[in-house]
Design a protein around this nucleic acid. Sequence first.
DNA 1: ACAGGAGTCAAAG
DNA 2: CTTTGACTCCTGT
Length: 154
Amino acid sequence: MEGSAKFGLWSVYIRWDSDNVVSRIRFVKQAVPGPVPLSLSQYLAGKKTSLSPLTSIHELDDTTFGRIYREVLAIPYGETRTYGEIAKIVGTGPRVVGMAMKRNMTPILIPCHRVVAVNGLGGYSPDISIKKDLLALEARVREKNSRKKPEQVI
DNA sequence: ACAGGAGTCAAAG
DNA sequence: CTTTGACTCCTGT
């Protein structure tokens, strides 16, 4: 199945199968007719902080890229890590982490927007403003949720 | 083999 | 403050 959901000036195209395995997510300018998973539209609306039960087609094996994707998946909603931090955990260089992010077939699901440079945003395809907007959305939702339970703030 | 990245750090200008 | 260079190491060709 495939379709797209609006996100600001862009649309989020998604293709997935009946087992909730997502084979492609991509930002497009023109909407693609068709359904999207409920969890995605709720995430984009700031009503949900998890994309479950969706899973990515990417292998999370013990190759360098597999380990990188595993670490990126573990970054909590609303938080960020730097390329260098991920690289250190996985035991590789920061540029390799950037390379893995660029080749990520399922952005948002594997939250590469939460991986930033040590001194700024870092890059994002096809448009850096999408990364900024996703991080702003998560920060806003996280702020709203923490206001409900002040004690839970770290 | 080899070039080149969504990076990082330190040193120099 | 900005620029430059060394470092890194995996991937596609």
